[in-house]
């Protein structure tokens, strides 16, 4: 119990944003509601609100990323924060010692928020536990553990298309074993109370006892897609062939690639999501990725609004849009 709720302050408000697990349904709904306020900001000629004026946000990326880093940067800038991007070659800083030293240095530069991506599960928790008390930490992806802002933007996208969560059947397809996105999505979906969450993949890409996360396991794509409202495709890392987890991309696509044909097993109004970047012809065909059921690009724009909402909330801004004027 020692480390429970490290992301909440003593009043139960968000201090850090590290994982979906441990957050209550109402908290997730508040984030989604709050994010609605920021959707319009991106469409205006002046795309800024002054909520984080005078604050410094540091993007601390120990792993390469283009989209996530860019959307965080845009989100921070649209909140009028100063943004510092630090990309660190992981091989140069494998020691925790230098990681902590780096944090101390950044603290000395009076940063207010760290947005952290790291190849190790638990890295964001580790950083949150060791930063000065006034500093806020957002997890932008840690190892195979969590990617909570991605999950929230996915929930946001689902809600915009489907309204209520309660009756939905959602399928998450592919490499669940290594996916931080999948873990966060599963926690978000079960917390928001969807009717059913399914994971679909070969046994080699499913973690042990994954059903304890509250999901149903399917090994065959057509059966798993039967009657679902939302399909979330996961990226297949090319290096998975080396671990003897799948034989080839060709065979993977044959079994788990999402094609128009497979899509027909789902509900007619199904939406297709993907956290990106897409491997066309590996986990998804171009016809589906670019087709009418795909909301993949919408996910990206929603990512900015969600990240603005979360950054703003953990810096102590609460609900209402009264401050939202330029």
């Amino acid at each position: 119990m020692r480390y429970r709720d490290i992301q909440l302050d003593e009043n139960g408000r968000l201090r850090h944003f590290l994982s979906i697990e441990g957050l209550k349904r109402q908290m997730l709904m508040d984030i989604l509601d709050y994010a609605e306020n920021f959707i319009t900001v991106g469409g205006r000629s002046i795309k800024k609100v002054p909520l984080l004026r005078g604050h410094t946000v540091t993007n601390l990326f120990f792993e390469p990323s283009t989209r996530t880093r860019t959307t965080f940067e845009l989100a921070a800038k649209r909140l009028s924060a100063d943004v510092l991007n630090i990309n660190i070659n992981t091989s140069a800083t494998t020691k925790g010692e230098s990681l902590l030293d780096m944090l101390r240095n950044l603290e000395a530069m009076h940063c207010d928020m760290f947005v952290v991506r790291h190849a190790q599960s638990g890295a964001a928790h580790f950083i949150a536990r060791h930063v000065a008390p006034h500093i806020r930490v957002i997890n932008a992806g840690d190892g195979s553990h969590a990617h909570p802002t991605q999950a929230m933007l996915d929930m946001f996208t689902i809600r915009r298309h489907k309204g209520e969560f309660a009756d939905l059947r959602v399928a998450v397809v592919g490499d669940i074993l290594h996916s931080r996105v999948a873990r966060s999505q599963i926690h978000a979906l079960t917390t928001l109370g969807v009717h059913e969450v399914r994971v679909i993949g070969p046994e080699t890409l499913l973690p042990q006892r994954v059903e304890e996360l509250g999901v149903h396991v399917y090994h065959h794509l057509p059966a798993g897609l039967e009657g679902v409202d939302v399909i979330i495709m996961l990226r297949l890392q090319r290096e998975r062939m080396q671990g003897a987890l799948i034989p080839s991309e060709r065979e993977y696509f044959e079994l788990y690639g999402l094609t128009e044909e497979k899509l027909a097993f789902a509900k007619p109004d199904v939406i297709v999501m993907h956290p990106g970047p897409i491997n066309r012809g590996v986990e998804i065909s171009s016809e589906v990725a670019d087709g009418p059921r795909s909301v993949i690009l919408e996910q990206v724009s929603n990512g900015i609004a969600i990240r603005m909402a979360i950054m703003s909330m953990i810096m102590g801004n609460r609900f209402g849009s009264e401050e939202e004027e330029q």
């Binding site: 638990g122 840690d142 190892g143 195979s144 553990h145 931080r180 873990r183 042990q208 304890e212 996360l213």
Partner: peptide, 15 residues
């Protein structure tokens, strides 16, 4: 341990 906790935390398991 490869099991419920390693799955939840995304840690590489030892079965």
């Amino acid at each position: 341990h490869e099991g419920a906790v390693s799955t939840r935390l995304g840690l590489r398991g030892i079965p």
